[in-house]
């Protein structure tokens, strides 16, 4: 028995690997902007608010991508709009809207007379159930998200780093904000099948948070996050296959383990800066401890 090659003889496993790698990559790239923008909570909110869209799509037999997209993008724009009115803080707006949307999803779900196993799949993810057509739409949507980020890389970077300076020099920071929210919503939608509504925030945030601990430039941060985002799901899927554990949860646990290991490593380095010797080492340690403080 070969632990590595045996699962590869199954088509569903190969498709799951491809789907997880795509989802992991897209989540990590978009998540990098989210983490630096302080939008982690927003990611959690948007994934939960996709739920009623999924349920409605199920009820009317529409493609779930459509229902989830409408619900998530709609909520993202609503949060952005409510926040821009300046009457309440954005985290308050997020808290109100996301709980309401998720409650609406559960309400609709409870109205469905028969037990529906697929919907649980959307809550917790089931990447092993992804078919070829799912994989194709996943790849197309993923390419769309990454392509948009690549096209507007400079603008998104400037607006993320210094929104005031970017706005003053003529970048449409408001529209870029909405675009980023829409990209987050779309990323969540394409991730729902593999990791599920409840865990997708980890796919978005954890690789970027790990990369933030060890990178000094934004480009490198995204590359490291993307690498973690591709490799961890592959490892997680093997664990899931051999342990017969839930795929989404296993992938998230692998990513979280990597984060904790890197965090502990950076903490040790920053506690003993003399050990690292070089100037670069201590700068890295300083960056690490700053990032760790932020995550706390």
């Amino acid at each position: 028995m070969n632990y590595i090659t045996d699962p590869l003889t199954f088509t569903f496993f190969l498709q799951a690997l491809a789907a997880s790698a795509i989802v992991g990559l897209v989540c990590a790239v978009v998540g990098s902007f989210m983490v630096l923008r302080g939008l982690a909570f927003m990611g959690d909110a948007l994934s939960h608010s996709a739920f009623p869209g999924v349920v409605v799509a199920y009820m009317i037999q529409a493609p779930f991508y459509l229902g989830a997209s409408i619900a998530a993008v709609g909520t993202a724009l609503a949060i952005g709009w409510v926040t821009r009115q300046g009457k309440i803080r954005s985290d308050t707006a997020i808290g109100v809207l996301f709980a309401a949307m998720f409650a609406f999803g559960i309400f609709l779900f409870s109205l469905i007379p028969n037990y529906v196993g697929d919907l649980f799949g959307f809550l917790f993810g089931n990447v092993l159930g992804i078919g070829l057509s799912d994989l194709v739409s996943l790849a197309i949507l993923g390419a769309l998200v990454i392509g948009t980020v690549a096209l507007l890389w400079k603008e998104l970077l400037f607006a993320t780093f210094d929104p005031l300076g970017a706005a003053a020099s003529g970048l449409p920071v408001g529209r870029l904000d909405y675009l980023l929210l829409a990209l987050i919503a779309l990323t969540i939608v394409i991730s729902l099948q593999s990791v599920g509504i409840i865990l997708v925030v980890a796919m978005l945030v954890t690789p970027a948070a790990t990369a933030q601990l060890i990178s000094k430039s934004f480009g490198r941060l995204v590359v490291i996050a993307g690498t973690i985002g591709v490799i961890c799901p592959v490892i997680g899927l093997y664990f899931s296959f051999w342990l017969n554990s839930a795929s989404g949860a296993t992938v998230v646990l692998v990513e979280s383990t990597v984060f904790v290991v890197v965090l502990l490593r950076m903490t040790v380095v920053s506690r003993h800066p003399a050990e690292s010797g070089s100037e670069a080492g201590s700068a890295e340690a300083a960056a690490g401890s700053a990032a760790a403080a932020q995550i706390d």
């Binding site: 630096l36 780093f161 430039s217 990032a291 932020q294």
Partner: peptide, 8 residues
Amino acid sequence: VDWSFPVN
């Protein structure tokens, strides 16, 4: 400004 932002 977020001085921990990874940018040179």
